[in-house]
């Protein structure tokens, strides 16, 4: 049997100490980085566990004050509706804009667009909310007069998502090796054929990550909803007008925590756990999908 080689055995005492020191620092950094996640899950579980049950995620809020009985189905459904609206709006625009910035990256127009897009990334969400209110929700003046509604909130969230998708799409395309692109062009592919057939498939994992980042961001937004949707304890029948508000998990947590009710505080923490788990599942799902498709592509092309 071969003897195990331990490289650190022959090190000088100074290098051994330095090795140990840097190794421990890395370990500490790792622990510090994962502690918040574990803390969130632990606190939310510890405070919310008495409310957790299957019916918590399958029933609507009931009782008085509303929510003291029943569950958070309104929030789950509402969050889903908002994410779908926001994605339908932002994914095509974001991918298109990202493609444009990549393809024309040196033009003045693209540089200006990139600057504006990056500035939009830094706009605080409460400002998005107020602007969304004036553009979509308010019933006076200019705008769409949709009232507090799922469509108003979904589109506002969509606007928040666009620069995220744009930025990540552009980056993912820039990561496609030049040799790959030249290979296609040298075979007589037009620029469009190359983008559609090679660049986008090669960048699809990165683009997916961009969409995921956007979705996760939207799932956690509360401030824009305060001005464009607020909240609904039921399932809406419409996405605009006076009955157009949808429920939302983040809003639900925000509202429950503000109620002077111990039961609602417990429900809020249980809802927080559900939201965190949804986020983690989405994240892992996308990663698994990306990993799987990469494996598949490597094997079968």
């Amino acid at each position: 049997m071969a003897e195990t080689v331990r490289p650190e055995k022959g090190l000088s005492p100074f290098r051994k100490v330095r090795n140990l020191l840097l190794g421990s620092l890395t370990a500490i950094a790792f622990v510090l980085a994962v502690t918040p996640l574990l803390a969130i899950i632990y606190v939310a579980y510890d405070r919310g566990k008495s409310a957790l049950s299957l019916s918590f995620i399958t029933s609507l809020p009931a009782g008085f004050p509303v929510g003291i009985e029943g569950g958070i189905l309104n929030g789950i459904v509402g969050s889903l509706i908002l994410v779908v609206i926001a994605s339908l709006f932002s994914v095509p625009i974001g991918i298109w804009a990202g493609l444009y910035l990549w393809d024309q990256s040196h033009t003045r127009m693209a540089k200006t667009t990139r600057l504006f897009s990056d500035l939009l990334l830094g706009v605080p969400s409460v400002i998005w909310g107020v602007v969304g209110f004036y553009v979509f929700s308010t019933n006076t003046g200019y705008g769409f007069h949709w009232g507090f509604s799922g469509l108003a909130a979904g589109l506002t969230l969509g606007f928040i998502m666009v620069p995220i998708v744009t930025r990540v799409t552009e980056q993912a395309l820039h990561d496609v090796p030049m040799s790959y692109i030249e290979g296609a062009l040298a075979l007589g592919a037009s620029r469009f054929q190359m983008v559609r057939g090679l660049a986008i498939p090669a960048a699809i994992t990165g683009i997916g990550t961009g969409i995921l980042l956007g979705v996760l961001n939207v799932l956690g937004q509360t401030a824009p909803l305060v001005f464009t949707n607020y909240y609904n304890t039921g399932i809406p029948h419409s996405l605009v007008g006076s009955n157009g508000s949808v429920g939302d998990l983040a809003m639900q947590i925000f509202i429950y925590i503000h109620e002077p009710s111990k039961e609602l505080h417990v429900k809020a923490m249980a809802a927080a756990l559900v939201l965190t788990v949804i986020v983690l599942l989405l994240d892992m799902g996308i990663r698994l999908l990306a990993w799987g498709s990469r494996k598949y592509a490597q094997k079968n092309g």
């Binding site: 290979g183 040298a186 007589g188 592919a189 079968n300 092309g301």
Partner: peptide, 30 residues
């Protein structure tokens, strides 16, 4: 059209992330 008449092979092998068949068929498919 020029590049269809004047082909090129590069320094580093740059096959596409496709099957062997599809790599060769790519130029025809487009």
């Amino acid at each position: 059209l020029i590049r269809q008449r004047v082909g090129m092979v590069f320094q580093k092998p740059n096959p596409f992330q496709m099957s062997i068949f599809e790599n060769v068929a790519y130029g025809l498919r487009i």
